[in-house]
Design a protein around this nucleic acid. Sequence first.
RNA 1: AGCUGGAUGGUGUAGUGGUAACACAACUGACUCUGGAUCAGUAUUCGAGGGUUCGAAUCCUUCUCCGGCUGCCA
Length: 578
Amino acid sequence: MANDDYKLEDITNEAGRSLASNFIQNIITEDIKNGKNDSRVHTRFPPEPNGYLHIGHAKSICLNFGLANNNGGICNLRFDDTNPAKEEIEYVDSIQEDVRWLGFDWEDRLYYAADYFDKLYEFAIDLIKQGDAYVCDLSPEEMKEFRGTLTEAGKESPYRNRTVEENLDLFDRMKNGEFPDGARVLRAKIDMAAGNINLRDPVIYRIQRGTHHRTGDKWLIYPMYDYAHPISDALEGITHSICTMEFEDHRPLYDWFLDKIAYGVEKYGRPQQIEFARLNLTYTVMSKRKLRLLVENGLVAGWDDPRMPTISGLRRRGYTPYAIRGFCERIGVAKRNSRVDIALLEHCIREELNSEATRAMAVLNPLKLVITNYPADQVEWLETENNPEKPERGTRLIPFTREIYIEADDFMENPVKKFFRLSPDKEVRLKSAYIIKCEEVIRDEESGEIIEIRCTYDPETKSGGPKAGKKVKGTLHWLSVRHALPAELRLYEHLFKEENPDEDEEADFTNMLNPNSLMILDKARVEPMLQEAGKEERFQFMRQGYFVADLESKPDKLVFNRIVSLRDTWGKLRAQKE
RNA sequence: AGCUGGAUGGUGUAGUGGUAACACAACUGACUCUGGAUCAGUAUUCGAGGGUUCGAAUCCUUCUCCGGCUGCCA
């Protein structure tokens, strides 16, 4: 697939705007109408560089960049790197790669919360001077105790009423490394009796030694998210600060800091935090913690294991940016928690690949078939369409000989009703070739296993030939034995066997892993054209599914990942019978 | 319990006082040299009660249910 953007207009109108409507767009429409922030729209995607991005992040990325794009605005990429203990440059790089791969461009607006450490520090001093912040010596345990509970008010810290001078002095000494990690913190002085626990004098600076990926060893104190985020937004001129629902309770704090800090509303405008529900998908987990556990315990091959819902995993699986963007468009945005059927994601890639992917013959479980009345040494190069959805993509030639492979599943000695494939005395068409009739079944003498099928063919029934119009029930894909190439095929299914692995948080979710999530077929054969398959090139293996050449695939060791199977009504029927 | 958010077909979203829509999924049927694709069709619904109104998914009210919040994480 040369260009992943070729159909972008499909989901947008003539003005290049998304047709999708959601409550955030409604807010923005209203804000523009009212001239809020001079009718600017400026969003940001603010990942913490402490892990790989997943499809849930893609939702946020599409939302933030999409909203900006659809409203004549811009979107920043900002790393929320206020905790040197957790953050790494490796993640900074992978995140940029993934956002770019998805098709979004932050131009020159790549920022880091660390860029604002100096300003954040100065604002903190202002807060102290205003009597809005104080240095607190309570230990973490004491602080927890003083915080109160969900139903009981907290108690004020005995350090709450220190003088401005003392606070200034102590904060300065915190910065200079005079105290050990965790010895003191700077807290906002708000309300220890607030029903919203986030307002009970939250910590805004902690002492934490550790080398920061951006600022090195310059700082010994680091700002907390709640403090750094609204100010970072404000300094970048963000107008709509979109985050997930769990930050809802933090919004009053977000607003409190903006109210207290003289960042210059007239210059930058005033950002507004808006929360939406994060994405959940059936048959998978989305929390970074759980994904990390899968990787670290070797339950998957890595962050880019094709079964992972990570962007890198989906990429290796063969998903396209277009399909992922289309998915994010279709799932919508709302505030209620929900779980999207992974079938919708699969639909998005099938739909794209149905119209785009070149068709190819591949036999997953080969069964030898000999056409007894076909000349032994003859090779016919038969013409077949590259993509029936796109006749302009032309045709190619595939070799036909006396000995071919068919799919083992396409033969049934005692066919059940509605089995339209090959069985004794039955006729079937070989795609782009001839109609054949099954005459004999050869078994292994010892095991009794079917090892070969013998058929005859009717030369007149060749595709395009005089009797080509003859009706038969089924059409099979096939491969000339002499020409077929061995290939390793990796068949993937859902990572979990449970629809909702998060349902019971007490349960060990690793027990719910689907034992069949990866099946490796090493006896598969593919048609000669696939020798040239480039990395990440996608194909439809006819009657089977969509496959992509894996990163590890080489001409002498072909490897394909199944992106998604074709819809399989026969499989469904068969499952019902059982 | 304190604060806070949510509830529209199986799933996800739209609808913002004027006969409830779109997508996916499911099921029928047609067509097919991919049991793919395509085409045609089917089903079920505004969490519950009360009120306002000529008219309510939309407004008011009571209730029920589900979620988030007690890191010096983000």
